[in-house]
Design a protein around this nucleic acid. Structure first.
Lengths: 345, 345
DNA sequence: CTGAAAGCGCTTACAG
DNA sequence: CTGAAAGCGCTTACAG
């Protein structure tokens, strides 16, 4: 039923025997050590093909000193920001000869700890935790392991632990100033919280703080703002936030914590019969792929995936752990933001 | 620089010594074999914590007969269909006590082969290949390994290899009939090809064939259809397809191969000043999460992620490999489809 | 409930 | 360029 018996799986000794060479020689061919003659290599290759031999990962790695494996943990692969980031890191890792083991936490600190634990068991050469939730136990685990690690917007740099700080404040400031310069005075800030009971969502916090700071620093006096936090998935939260907030008061601009939230905001505004940007401007954060394809194309703050992935690999493989790395953000003005309407009826 | 020296990593023997027990006892505690007293377990746990001990995955798996690891390969994690499917399979696997090793091919048959190869080296207990591209060499590799395997819309069932057949034709038939019943007679079918030189994109082919078959089977005589295939990423392709096709002729309905293509079609139509569904109806395939949040919400053919993941686990772990499994599709009528306009000017 | 020993399938000095 | 041997860090019968 199970196909061949388990013992049918050929081993390196079977290959050696069939090829008429020793174990070490087969191993050298497998690892491309190059200290074998072409004729030998060919015989070994043929024996491997004939037997359907496949090296055992566990035996191979156990016998090796080090691994070329990097661990990457993100919050959720359904979220385009994380999916795009994971792909960028994977490509950069491959370019540098590393394989990636990818895990998702679903915003749960417990799953984050479990993921770190599993990756450490795999003796990874480096660990990148690019999640929006954070967890002090996880940070301590990573730090104590001594494995070069990088967190996103979390952890104090030192020893083996680096930290990448996204300039969320700068991005938010740019977004707020953009809206104010367009004449907007009534701003709604929308974020969603995931169900993370005991986790501090750093990136969320920073974006919100960035918004608040930009408002405080603003030169204009008659600013009216409201900040809404709706639990649940981003798109649903964005829609509900708009339906709720616009019942009481009229805003001319909405700033969302992520593009996914903006997706829901678009829908909410449209179901209220409000046009973007004629009636309401929308600006967001993340520059996920789909934001360009919304109607109208969404103005959003870009976090460069390329820069991020290069920083990650620098933190993990440069031999200089414990760095504090900064990542710029850039406001992309597209078509979802415009002049404040003359008469926001 | 590297933190502790590599040899600093404690082993099971260090734990045994500190706890005053033997190797086997520590192993029993680690594996929850339960044949240890609570007092012993506690001592071992404390020793593990004190030393910061972490089991070595490779040694552990090498010594074990079997693995509880399943391999899952998808085409691209940025595509919401694959991301959602991966998450569903992961949850179902976890429910049944399996871990998942996830890989992406980026639509490349070569990467598909490499992924299968790596997963087989990890001695996976089962392999699911849920990609849109297919490759006969990959199918042969999987088959010859004897590992229980399931392909999506590819491979002849037999021995260790199962196949899940998505009822794309049925879904397309429902979509076409829905449009025809709404009075539409001028239909545009849009698909995008990825850069897969030598791969046959089965799911694409089947959807297109489903469309063609539904048209042929149709009772109405005055049907006008056009089928467009634009290379490149889905959203870009959808937009370009509309801009191209509507230059020459006026369609009242567009059927897209995937939701991602529909995203681009929306944008193309809107930039032409055409309203959905007042001027043009759109119906799609996949029911990805975002389709519900487009404006208007997209009518699309659903492929149940829950059913799919249950079929995958059934194929891999039921002990009855070599099955042919069928997966239904369901047309979800939302707001992007409506009556054919009276005067499609 | 515990301990000593064999074995998992490789890689890597080392000697030839 | 090749071969014999030690060792990687666990798990698992087996004997006590």
């Amino acid at each position: 039923m199970q196909g061949q018996a388990p013992s049918a799986r050929p081993k390196i000794g079977d290959v050696a025997q069939l090829a008429g060479v020793s174990l070490g020689t087969v191993s050298a061919v497998l690892n491309q050590n190059g200290r074998t003659s072409e004729a030998t290599r060919e015989r070994v290759r043929r024996a491997i093909a004939d037997l359907g031999y496949r090296r055992d990962l566990y035996a191979s790695q156990l016998a090796r000193r080090e691994t070329r494996l990097l661990g990457l943990i993100v919050s959720n692969l359904q979220n385009p920001f994380f999916a795009e980031t994971a792909q960028a890191v994977e490509e950069e890792a491959e370019r540098q000869g590393f394989q990636l083991s990818l895990m998702a936490t679903d915003f749960s600190p417990l799953k984050l700890r479990a993921a770190i634990s599993r990756l450490l068991e795999a003796r990874i050469a480096g660990l990148a935790v690019l999640t929006s939730e954070s967890d002090s136990v996880s940070i301590a685990m990573a730090r104590e392991s001594g494995v070069p690690t990088v967190f996103l917007d979390a952890g104090k740099p030192g020893h083996s632990l680096s930290s990448i700080r996204v300039d969320a404040r700068g991005g938010m400031r740019a977004a707020v100033n953009h809206l104010i310069s367009l004449g907007h005075r009534d701003l709604l800030y929308v974020q969603n919280s995931q169900n993370t009971t005991d986790a501090l969502l750093r990136s969320h916090l920073q974006r919100r703080q960035g918004f608040a700071a930009a408002i405080r620093a603003c030169c204009v006096s008659e600013l009216q703002t409201e900040m809404l936090d709706i639990p649940g998935p981003g798109a649903e939260a964005g829609e509900r936030a708009v339906l709720t907030a616009f019942q009481e008061r009229r805003f001319t601009a909405v700033i969302t914590m992520t593009d996914v939230v903006a997706l829901g905001v678009y829908r909410g505004l449209q179901s209220l019969g409000l046009s973007i940007p004629q009636d309401v401007s929308v600006v967001s954060f993340d520059n996920t792929h789909f934001s360009h394809f919304l109607h109208p194309p969404l103005s959003t703050v870009d976090i460069s995936r390329g820069d991020l992935s290069r920083l990650v690999l620098q933190a993990l493989t440069s031999g200089k752990p414990g760095q504090l790395l900064r990542l710029r953000t850039t406001l992309l003005v597209r078509k979802s933001t415009g002049q404040r309407p003359a008469d926001p009826a």
